[in-house]
Computed example of a mutant assay.
Amino acid sequence: MDISLIFKLGIGALLITIINTILDASGRKDWQIYVTVVGVVMAFTIVLKEVSVLFDTIKTMFMLY
């Protein structure tokens, strides 16, 4: 794991915030929920991949096949 994970999550959060601000200014508050849910799902997907790699490393380290 390196610092790029933090940058990916930070940039994703920033983009979702900007899109939500634009949608709020244009009066499309109903779409804000969808954009937020998509952002959360994308963040969970990124984190889930890293957790999977962590568990694979732990299994290999302790020889748990």
Rank of each mutant, 00 (worst) to 15 (best):
G39N: 07
M61N: 09
V35K: 02
V41N: 08
I11V: 10
F44V: 12
G27D: 06
I16F: 02
F55T: 03
G10A: 05
L5R: 05
I18M: 10
G10V: 01
F62T: 03
A43V: 00
V51S: 08
D2Q: 09
Y65M: 00
R28C: 11
M61C: 12
L5Y: 07
V47H: 04
D24T: 07
M42C: 11
K29D: 08
L9N: 01
D2E: 12
G10P: 04
A43S: 15
V38P: 05
I22C: 07
I11S: 00
I3D: 09
S4D: 14
M42V: 11
D56V: 01
V47M: 08
T21G: 13
E50M: 06
I46V: 09
I46T: 09
T57C: 08
G39L: 01
L23H: 00
A43K: 04
M42F: 15
V38M: 13
F62C: 04
L9P: 02
K59T: 00
I3L: 13
I33Y: 14
N20M: 14
A43D: 07
K29C: 05
L48D: 11
I18C: 09
W31N: 05
V35N: 01
L64V: 02
F55L: 11
G10S: 09
D2M: 09
R28N: 15
G12Y: 03
V51C: 06
